[in-house]
Design a protein around this nucleic acid. Structure first.
Lengths: 359, 359
DNA sequence: GTGAAAGCGCTAACAG
DNA sequence: CTGTTAGCGCTTTCAC
């Protein structure tokens, strides 16, 4: 591996001049600068980030700590967003996973400290309280897709309330009045917030609704086996004497179970029933027939923003508190006006699903 | 940040003795060792990996370069597998994404070189030829889920041929004789290899089949919009005068389109049609009704193995060539014997889906 | 505009 | 068994 010394010798200057030519070009005569850069290029010289960092007192590395990233595949978009921004800013990203070490993040954080990361991002698989993460003092931290009871940490989460509002507002605009919310487990933060937004939309439309009259719990836990529960809940819901004309689901998987239950009962979607999902897992929402209208979770944007907050904090900013990021409602073919008119498509990609409707 | 010097002073020994106590405990009297470790613990001392690496001539860091990780969420399991093994071995992992820099991996690799990574893993989103990756000389590299025309690189890929064989063998064991393979785009490597395995299974059962008689192309590209194509292909297939009793699909999304087409035509799965998928995207395969029998892609195992190969190579081993990793056939409820008997469940988790069949 | 020396935190080689 | 010296590759004084 060629070093700055080799470059200096080959260019006939001192090491420091090479260093200057690379880091502060203006402080070197353009003559020698060109020569140095040419030599560096020819030797394929890349300065050692570690040595540089040691001298400068900053590593140029940020650590990303994730919980069980596997269970919600789309959460990788968080990682992408983080990586995008960090690389734009000349930072490198170390990544570590809590799961591998039996739920303890201590070992990973120790590794991060050993690499002298300048800050840490803690990303959760789903929006939740993350008390298990103990932000190391002297290591600026930002929470992504989770939050802390002591909210003095910068935090980036999806705007669940707006999501719930947007979904219900959409259904109301299509003329639906008999709407049910098939929720995720009630103890989940997302459930509470989306409910709030959904009820607000109902109220604003002059429809009286309470949590009790409005919600059916489709999922009592966060495990993988809850899809059977969701099917049963949807099935029972669709057998009610007064059947809703629209169902808003806690996530896209649950929407799929609503599709399944509706198919088994001979209820056509969207003709006899409109369905809205949440998350916009594209494999689902574009693959289902009809294409699923759903609220997207803005994971990539959240990742970017979180990285930005962290780097700002490293730069001296002290912005604290929670930032809520808006996710768009993606209208596809699973929602339709009660009088039979199709919902207006709002996104280009809903065309693909539209084609699926009448193949 | 406390350094080894502070620890040395507090413990009343030299820096080198502290170093020894940490890295080569036996070379220090147990007496002073205990004292040193206690002080280090109390000061929350973590040695600077960068300084250590500079001195030792090894960074303890490996780079993982991915292409467009977003499009196939389950490929994150590769990352998990890699991270698991690396952290077990005391390595850190830098991660970089090609996509962000307009398809060029040069910038990311430069960053890796700057951090003096000891080796690089290149992971692709789907099994394919990856000529765009130019393994930097002097940086040991391993390919994951992709391969190179000059096959002197260690390479880890799924055993597609065995997967195709396992799927068809399963259907044959259920008595199916009229089987069609709804393939991914024919130019994809996976298609060719699975076809090979599938045809071998047919031949061994004494059934004559050729690519032409056996295959229907359900997807001509790798883009997201191909689901409409898959639906149409499935639809046409199911309208044939002699309809197959079983369909083997190129992936789980296509299996979903087969479900959709079958539902629209009033064909019951698995009673009148058995369906096998590929990938085992669990959100799909467990969420579909009936649960989808599918061949799992062993991404996590592949990641682990690739990391292992890389570390071995760093240790001097020179194992070259392609390693194929086996993925299990996960039997759920979408396949059934032609005479009506249910398929024997082979995995515990198929119980969940089994419940979904008769809720 | 450029160079010499010192030091970031650590450890291998050589004393003692 | 333990301490001293030198140096990994780089950059910041402080001279010239």
């Amino acid at each position: 591996m060629t070093t700055i010394r080799t470059v200096a010798e080959r260019a006939g200057v001192s090491m420091k001049t090479v260093s200057r030519a690379l880091n502060n070009p203006d402080s070197v005569s353009s003559n020698t600068r060109e020569r140095i850069l040419a030599v560096a290029e020819a030797l394929n010289f890349v300065p050692d980030q570690r040595a540089r960092g040691m001298r400068l007192g900053r590593s140029g590395v940020v650590g990303l700590l994730t919980d069980v990233i596997a269970s919600t595949p789309c959460a990788v978009d968080i990682v992408r967003g983080v990586e995008d921004y960090l690389s734009e800013q000349g930072y490198s990203m170390l990544i570590g996973n809590t799961e591998s070490r039996a739920g303890s993040s201590e070992a990973v954080l120790r590794g991060f400290r050993a690499s002298r990361v300048e800050g840490v991002l803690y990303a959760a698989t789903y929006h939740r309280l993350a008390e298990e993460f103990h932000p190391p003092p002297s290591m600026p931290s930002v929470l992504v897709n989770c939050f802390h009871s002591t909210p003095d940490l910068p935090t980036v989460v999806p705007d669940e309330e707006r999501g719930g509002y947007a979904a219900i507002e959409h259904l109301l605009s299509l003329g639906h009045r008999s709407i049910t919310y098939l929720t995720l487990a009630p103890e989940i933060e997302a459930t509470r917030l989306r409910m709030k937004g959904a009820l607000r939309a109902m109220r604003e439309a002059g429809i009286s609704a309470t949590t009790e009259s409005f919600a059916v719990t489709g999922q009592t836990g966060t495990g993988a086996f809850s899809q059977a529960e969701a099917y049963e809940a949807a099935h029972n819901l669709l057998l009610r004497r007064v059947r809703p004309t629209a169902i808003f689901c806690g996530n896209d998987e649950m929407a799929l179970q609503v599709f399944n239950a509706a198919a088994d009962l001979g209820i056509a979607i969207p003709e006899a029933l409109s369905v809205v999902g949440f998350d916009d897992h594209r494999l689902f929402s574009e693959g289902m027939r009809p294409g699923l209208t759903t609220v997207a979770l803005p994971y990539q944007k959240m990742g970017r923003l979180a990285a930005e907050l962290l780097l700002n904090e490293l730069g001296g900013s002290t912005q604290r508190g929670v930032v809520r990021v808006d996710g768009p409602l993606v209208v596809r073919a699973s929602t339709r006006a009660v009088d039979g008119k199709a919902a207006p498509a709002r996104k280009a990609r809903s065309r693909a699903s539209a084609k699926l409707v009448s193949p």
